[in-house]
């Protein structure tokens, strides 16, 4: 059963924290790869997130939980996006 509410603080905090730490490390990334590589990273990240599955004790869509067999590690996705964004904003080529 997909449960959107009650959305627990425990599900959203890791996503935010993951994004923040990812952004911090992203500012240190220096590379000059093409846009295609970035798209590939995002695709690989989503595949990876489905392999890792949602963290234990995650029961809502926001946490990345869809059904018993299918769920995504939302902090992993947010951390990857954080790194890429940090790179775009403060990183270098």
């Amino acid at each position: 059963m997909v449960m959107l509410f009650p959305m627990m603080g425990g599900e959203i905090t890791p996503i935010v924290v993951g994004f923040a730490i990812g952004f911090l490390f992203g500012t240190q990334v220096y590379s000059n790869v093409s846009r295609r590589t970035v798209v590939m990273i995002i695709c690989l990240c989503i595949v990876g997130a489905s392999l890792f599955q949602a963290p234990v004790f995650t029961w809502s869509l926001i946490g990345g939980y869809i059904t018993d067999g299918l769920s995504f590690a939302a902090p992993f996705i947010s951390a990857t996006i954080g790194i890429l964004l940090g790179w775009a904003v403060r990183g270098g080529k």
């Binding site: 993951g18 490390f25 590690a73 902090p75 992993f76």
Partner: peptide, 8 residues
């Protein structure tokens, strides 16, 4: 991705 995995 490894860095993101560490953060996860």
């Amino acid at each position: 991705l490894l860095a993101a995995y560490g953060i996860l």
